[in-house]
Computed example of a mutant assay.
Amino acid sequence: MKFSRKLLWPLNPFYYWGALTIKKMYDWNIFKSQTYNFPLITVGNLSVGGTGKSPFVAYLIDILQNEKRIATLSRGYKRSTTGFQLANTNSTALEIGDEPLQFKTTYPNITVAVDAERRNGINQLRKLKPKPEVIILDDAFQHRKVTAGLQILLTTHYNLYPDDCMLPSGDLREPISAAARATIIVVTKCPLNLSDHLQQKIITKLNPLAHQSVYFTGIAYAETVHSNTSKLNLEKFTENTFCLVTGIANPTPLVNHLNELEATFVHLNFPDHHVFSDREIKKISSHQFILTTQKDFMRLKDIEILKEKLFYLPIKVKFLNNEAAFKQQINAIVSS
């Protein structure tokens, strides 16, 4: 924990009791939560970000899109629009947010929508013809106005929620007890060689309830980098000195991966969902080769001076254990 955040520790009890009060209001049915009679899947976390929600939503789309009509619903963080918006082939990150644009760009045949009010977004999606058969709620675990049939809670290997504390000195938005709402807990960003023994130690620390399943996933990086018009072999690309541009919550795994490839690069690191200024764009464009994440690429790909030199490195979720059992749980919910 940074020293500056330690100074905020006296404020933690106020945030904790405020969050706990809201939680209890829903638990005691004083505040009402809407349930639905069709498959609704929530992917979220207890912390303020960086757990790998977008790759996990993409994984769910991959395994479901050939069987059902899929829609994703996100808040659309840092977009310029308000209310319910449907993504289309001409949408921009400024209009719908970088992550929803990433979903629509990667999966053009699914329905992608944004709405800060999840209940309204769900109702609008169900009015479409044909209406989606499955809706995936991105980053909505803490959105208690909606109760999904399946709630997937993500926590990172390097910062498990039992080891964290509440805002403002920690990263948790809700008390640890809120994890009880989850049906599935996924430990993300694990080393791909994480042993069964260490997995079991983590499960013991998480202390799952009887109804909860725990899975472990890591990040699998692609062997190619992609631009607007082409793709290159990653090893060939890293023979050049390049600029790595990141505006994500935790770029460390990507930096470590590039270091393992013995790449030579300058790292320009920005806050999550960063809106790049003209001065920053000029600095980035001074480099001949530029690599970024797929999410950041959504915000940078249409800038003219970057188009010929900007590439992103795709990633995929890789299960370390029991992937077949996970898919079976998903299919059971979707088929019910």
Rank of each mutant, 00 (worst) to 15 (best):
M1P: 01
K2Y: 12
K2G: 00
R5I: 00
L7T: 06
F14V: 15
M25G: 11
Y26V: 08
Y26S: 07
N29E: 14
K32G: 00
T35W: 01
N37E: 15
I41Y: 00
V48Q: 09
G49P: 11
G52Q: 06
K53V: 11
F56Q: 03
L64C: 11
N66Y: 04
R79N: 02
G83W: 06
N88I: 10
S91N: 03
L94R: 04
L94F: 01
V112I: 10
D115W: 08
R119L: 10
R119Y: 02
I122W: 02
K131I: 04
D138C: 11
D139G: 07
F141W: 09
F141P: 07
H143G: 01
T147W: 02
T147K: 15
G149H: 10
L153E: 08
H157Y: 15
P162R: 04
D164R: 12
D164L: 09
R173L: 10
A178W: 03
R181S: 06
I185W: 03
V186M: 10
V187H: 11
C190E: 05
H197F: 14
Q199F: 08
I202N: 08
I203T: 15
T204N: 09
K205F: 00
P208N: 02
L209G: 10
Q212H: 07
I219H: 13
I219G: 11
E223V: 05
T229A: 11
T229V: 03
K236D: 12
T241G: 01
L244V: 05
T246A: 05
G247S: 14
N250D: 15
V255C: 10
H257M: 14
E260L: 12
E260T: 13
E262Y: 12
P271Q: 00
D272L: 06
D272C: 04
H274Q: 00
D278M: 05
R279K: 12
E280W: 10
T292V: 13
M298V: 05
I303S: 05
K309T: 12
K309N: 13
L310Q: 01
I315K: 01
K316G: 00
K318S: 14
K318E: 15
K318M: 13
N322Y: 11
N322F: 10
N322I: 06
A332Q: 15
